[in-house]
Nucleic acid binder design. Structure first.
Length: 417
RNA sequence: GCGUCGGUGGCGGAGCGGUCAAUCGCACUUGGCUGUAAACCAAGCGCCCUUGUGGCUACGUAGGUUCGAAUCCUACCCGGCGCA
């Protein structure tokens, strides 16, 4: 019996479904939004608040926890115990950092291909030489301040710590080994997350490499008999914004004996639904699918419609920390002047503990005065907003009212913008 | 009263003859954030024309020197400090 299992409670559409994901530390009712706890902490949100905020599970990061020291976490009994959370846990493999500390370092690049894409145009203009861009940037200017952060080869990735410049190396085997030490219920294969503007040839090269790494990750995991009984492993589909690569990737990853699947990398915003449809069509129905790092309310609806079960995203906590508040009428900037004397809750009618207690004017004041409590309250509200949205979506799927719920929600959500 | 230092945009504080509507910080206004390098980043911030190698008014006040002054000179006003 595998440590991870998935049960489809109701298939609601061609792909969408409500289900239950069982782990050694309890179940997650899906669709679900999993909180990001990169460094064994959901920024601004103590684990004691998880239940009230509807947080069913968390995802921590291999790269960050490796750099900050694994021994204490291992001795504590794993990330979950370490952070005093008894529910289901996941760890990301560190593959995303190949991107964010590699080609993405020093740039403001989102996971989505920007509509205006200066990089592409620049490439097209100068591209007499066709072929792959370098897999990672050795930028001498950055090197002087931060070191050379990520370089990829067939075996793995060499990293320079963003904290102290020390050199480290991850391979699929090493990532899995670290994830064993971290002890989360679900671990992820080591992959390469590519930049949204990566050209086709490079994207394919990275995808093929990710497939090889997936096999090695899987093998490394299955070989460890004890951990294999305690932790499940997800393979990650790549392929960037190219539908044909995505399909190929999904087929290949689906052909491996993973317990579930992560869908990673970057997307073209316009085509995301079509791409996810195609990916999930290739993945075995009975296994769970996690859409990595995606997270705006609009995107969750798209993911669910396309058959994704779990989601994670830094946005609720990052937006919260920086003053962005999710409301059913759209996102608002709570530090803005208009909320100085607004004595309504952050989101009127919201059931979260923050909205039960505090006003916009107060949270506005906390941000203006740079009180720590401002980002804390905002993060907690936002987290509730996303977990609750997923929960409402789940209920709608069970009731067969998903489309109506989605259309009603989005109509209001987009009203103000 | 004498001496001395100083008065710059909401505040602090640069500038000390042209390239100054004036460095910078704070404050203020707004925008962004999608497997967290992020309690962060960006833009704006005298007035006017929605445009610009645009116009106007500005560096205590009033004059003056100069092709040209926030920058030099004179007087005055105001403030700090020292001595009476």
């Amino acid at each position: 019996m595998r440590p991870i299992s998935f049960e489809i409670t109701k298939s609601a559409g061609p792909l969408s479904r409500a289900g239950v994901l069982y782990t050694p530390h309890g179940a997650i009712e899906t669709p679900a939004f999993v909180a990001v706890a990169t460094k064994a902490n959901v920024k601004g949100v103590p684990s004691t608040a998880f239940q009230a905020l509807g947080v069913q599970g968390i995802i921590a990061n291999t790269y960050h926890l490796y750099l900050s020291g694994l021994e204490a976490i291992e001795k504590a009994g794993g990330v979950g115990k370490f952070m005093a959370f008894s529910g289901p846990t996941m760890t990301d493999s560190g593959g995303f950092q190949v991107f964010s500390l590699g080609v993405g370092f020093g740039k403001k690049i989102s996971k989505f291909l920007p509509e205006e894409n200066p990089f592409l145009r620049r490439d097209e203009r100068h591209s007499s030489e066709k072929g792959s861009p370098p897999p990672a940037v050795w930028d001498e200017d950055l090197a002087t301040s931060h070191g050379k952060l990520a370089i990829i080869d067939e075996e793995g990735v060499s990293f320079t710590s963003h904290l102290d410049g020390t050199l480290h190396r991850f391979t699929p085997e090493r990532s899995v080994e670290i994830q064993h030490q971290l002890g989360a219920d679900i671990i992820f294969a080591f992959d390469e997350c590519t930049a949204p503007d990566a050209e086709y040839d490079y994207q394919k090269e990275a995808m093929d490499r990710t497939h090889r790494w997936a096999e090695r990750s899987l093998k490394a995991h299955r070989q460890n008999v004890q951990k294999n009984n305690e932790q499940g492993i997800y393979g990650i589909v790549q392929g960037g914004r190219y539908a044909d690569l995505r399909v190929q990737s999904a087929k290949e990853i689906a052909g491996m004996d993973f317990d579930g699947f992560g869908i990673g990398g970057s997307f073209s915003k316009q085509d995301i639904l079509g791409i996810l449809d195609k990916v999930n069509n290739e993945l075995p129905k009975e296994k769970p699918r996690h859409l990595l790092g995606i997270g705006e309310p609009e995107d969750i609806f798209i993911g669910v419609a396309a058959g994704c079960d779990t989601f994670d995203c830094v946005l609720p906590t990052r937006n919260g920390r920086t003053g962005g508040i999710y409301t059913r009428g759209g996102k608002i900037q709570i530090p803005n002047a208009e909320y100085r004397e607004d004595f309504l809750p952050l989101d009127k009618g919201c059931g979260c503990p923050v909205c039960q207690t505090y006003t916009r004017a107060y949270v506005h004041h906390l941000f203006r005065t740079k009180e720590l409590l401002g980002p804390v309250l905002a993060s907690q509200h936002n987290l509730y907003f996303l977990t609750n949205l997923a929960k409402q979506i789940r209920n709608a799927l069970l009731d067969g009212t998903f489309e109506k719920f989605r259309d009603d929600f989005l109509a209001k959500y987009r009203l103000t913008k």
